[in-house]
Design a protein around this nucleic acid. Structure first.
Length: 637
RNA sequence: GCCGGUGUAGCUCAGUCGGUAGAGCGAGGCAUUCGUAAUGCCUAGGUCGUGGGUUCGAGUCCCAUCGCCGGCUCCA
């Protein structure tokens, strides 16, 4: 077979392993972790049977991290076996994750706790020090079954039995430890980089709640200690930004055990933030001729039967309520009500597109174990809208909607996105034409706007294709917020029509979209994105006024009234505290602008500004201050 | 819902071997009136998540239950 490497062709014998190959081409280095041939990754232990373009994978290549992490999972498994006994430890799967690895295991007679992690880590380091070669062996199915049966590795047997009949079955061996594995792996345990076991949690075998629950041990791994430290710092940073903590500290929201889990209580400051967000959204939507509506929180069961929710979504709905022989359900979505609004009169092609918007509060049953602060709740408000349009409007509507989404996200401080288009799945409703036109509009609009996107082929809902936008926050995490979905289902179910130019009835297209998604969740993302340091336009309190001594209180009130008259959210910190203490407290409360008022300011009618903003510094007149803060609010800086 | 952890003052946490609960911050009061990140003193505040049980005696041990935390699962 011919391997092409650095512009040269090498005639290499088939079945050669990477290690031998590297010797043959005179490239040996501990930095080389694997190779790829025509993009297929091999470790250095695997025999190669096909030629092509050879690339060396070094520690600098992203792919090498996967190899490292995979091997660390094995080393952890070996450590567990040595600590708890070969026969007692049953291995599940041990894949890599975004920044490390995990292994799902069952340990007979022992529950691994966080306290055990240190012991396991120590054993892992010991194994690494043994400098064990990691060897690959291929087995026949029979051999493999026999081997793992002897070892009582029930989960491995399950895996082997589910492999396709022509699959190559390989095991990797390091010292006494042998694990069923496809690879790739580092060649020797001594090459294992920096790692830390982070947590242990339960995980169903094969993700199936009817199967036994194994224990999943998570680890983080990188080639160098430095990278590991950086990652651990990121977790620290995320912890500092945790919206549950900041939400409490900044008095934005609370969740009361007595009120109920997953139900958000907006405290005055959080409510102010929410009102600002909602007012902003209303304005943005009205500019594009969206019509705002209000709809009830409950609807009769017949409504949910028509919409299909009772057959497809019931397990996520709060249970039925009976009133006067009728059954009602609390709404998990706003769609059926918006359908009712469309149907409230005969529609003409002349009034399309119709854009019905609502900040609609919905309730969904979420399992108790998944609730999480503002991010995962049982009651939330969607910035929801349904656009009813003609086929020829589809493109323009999608483009307009996307522009609005990017505009809004940008104003909230998000400029980096991952965009996904999900296309037609196997069991779909709607005509081929419906899907083509819709998918085409989604792709074309993104291209017109110069946005790159990925396609999740066949990942759409059965009722229509969609675009999901994930926003990147200040520390690099992605959050899915906006979604724009076609719905070919509801127009049929509710028998929606409009009268066309031809005086005949036609089916409208429905585009269902939310930009922030859930106001609750988006607020959580905002809190973490800004670490509680909101830009002035969003900050519940924009200005803290600190009179230095009581004799300055009168001037402070004067300034306060002037700000209040201009709709600037200010308050006077009139506590009997020293100025320094007040400055500290207001900094901790993350109030963006602090005005210190003393003799100088009172006599000159100025304010002394303390803020992080360059244009808002030092001593300026009140008018200047108001002008500058207005400018900053306007810029949403 | 499942696995594991956890629950002590408004918040963050200490509480040994089972012997009736403690700190800091915060809150209230008094004094201080101060120039860019913590002034001092005093005071109040707890059915130890809840309900059972063991015990002469339970914050501490056991059972149940609720909430929270980390995951899994789920997210037409």
């Amino acid at each position: 077979m011919i391997l092409e490497f650095e512009g040269q062709n090498y005639d290499i014998q088939e079945g050669i392993t990477g290690i031998e190959l590297l010797k043959a081409i005179n490239k040996t280095s501990n930095d080389i972790i694997g190779i790829s041939i025509d993009g297929i990754i091999y470790d250095l232990q695997t025999p190669i049977y096909h030629g092509g373009k050879l690339k060396l994978i070094t520690k600098q290549d992203k792919e090498s991290l996967d190899i490292l992490r995979h091997s660390l999972a094995h080393i952890m498994a070996q450590a567990l076996k040595e600590i708890y006994g070969d026969e007692k430890v049953h291995l599940g799967i041990g894949p890599t994750t975004e920044d490390g690895f995990f292994y799902d295991v069952e340990v007979e007679g022992h529950h691994i706790s966080e306290d055990d992690l240190k012991t396991i880590e120590d054993k892992m380091r010991e194994i690494i020090k043994r400098s064990l070669d990691i060897k690959r062996k291929e087995l026949s199915r029979e051999e493999a079954l026999k081997f793992f049966e002897n070892k009582k590795e029930v989960y491995k047997l399950d895996i082997i039995n589910s492999l396709p009949s022509d699959a190559k079955i390989s095991v990797y061996e390091q010292g006494d430890f042998v694990d069923l594995c496809r690879g790739p792996h580092i060649p020797n345990t001594a090459l294992a980089g920096a790692f830390k076991l982070s947590s242990v949690a339960g995980a169903y075998w094969r993700g199936d709640a009817s199967k036994p629950m194994l224990q999943r041990i998570y680890g983080i791994a990188f080639w160098t200690e430095k990278e590991l430290e950086e990652r651990l710092k990121l977790y620290e940073e995320a912890k500092k930004r945790d919206h549950r903590r900041l939400g409490k500290e900044l008095e934005l929201f609370t969740i009361d055990e007595q009120v109920g889990p997953g139900l958000i209580i907006w405290l005055p400051k959080g409510a102010t933030l929410r009102q600002i967000m909602e007012d902003y959204l209303r304005k943005k939507h009205k500019d594009l001729n969206y019509q705002f509506v209000y709809t009830p929180h409950v609807g009769k069961s017949t409504l949910w039967e028509t919409s299909g929710h009772l057959s497809y979504y019931k397990e996520n709905m709060f249970p039925e309520m009976k009133i006067e022989e009728e059954s009602y359900y609390v709404k998990p979505m706003n769609c059926p009500f918006h359908m009712a609004i469309y149907k409230s009169k005969i529609r003409s092609y002349k009034e399309l597109p119709i854009k019905i918007a609502e900040l609609g509060t919905v309730y969904r049953y979420e399992m108790s174990g998944v609730l999480h602060g503002l991010m995962r709740v049982r009651g939330f408000t969607q910035d929801d809208a349904h656009i009813f349009c003609k086929e020829e409007d589809v493109k323009d509507v999608i483009k307009e909607t996307l522009e609005l989404a990017f505009d809004v996200l940008k104003d909230f401080g998000f400029n980096d996105y991952q965009i996904f288009i999900s296309t037609k799945p196997k069991d779909a409703i709607g005509t081929e034409e419906n899907w083509q036109i819709s998918e085409g509009a989604l792709k074309e609009s993104l291209e017109t706007l110069g946005k790159t996107y990925e396609i999740d082929e066949g990942g759409g809902a059965f009722y229509g294709p969609k675009i999901d936008i994930k926003i990147k926050d200040a520390i690099g995490r992605f959050w899915q917020c906006s979604t724009i979905q076609f719905d070919f289902n509801l127009p049929e179910r509710f028998d929606l029509t409009y009268i066309g130019e031809d005086n005949k009835k036609h089916r409208p297209y429905i585009i269902h979209r939310a930009l922030l998604g859930s106001i609750e969740r988006f607020t959580g993302v905002l809190i973490e994105h800004y670490a509680g340091n909101f830009p002035i336009w969003l900050s519940p309190i924009q200005v803290a006024i600190i009179p230095i001594a009581d004799r300055h209180l009168e001037y402070a009130k004067e300034v306060f009234e002037l700000l209040k008259a201009k709709n600037i959210r200010a308050y006077i910190d009139d506590r009997a505290e020293r100025m320094n203490a007040k400055i500290r407290d207001n900094e901790l409360k993350k109030i963006p602008i602090i005005l210190v008022l003393g003799d100088k300011e009172a006599s000159n009618k100025t304010v002394s500004i303390r803020s992080k903003y360059e244009n808002l510094q030092g001593a300026v007149s009140i008018d200047d201050f108001i002008e500058k803060i207005y400018e900053t609010i306007q810029n949403k800086a």
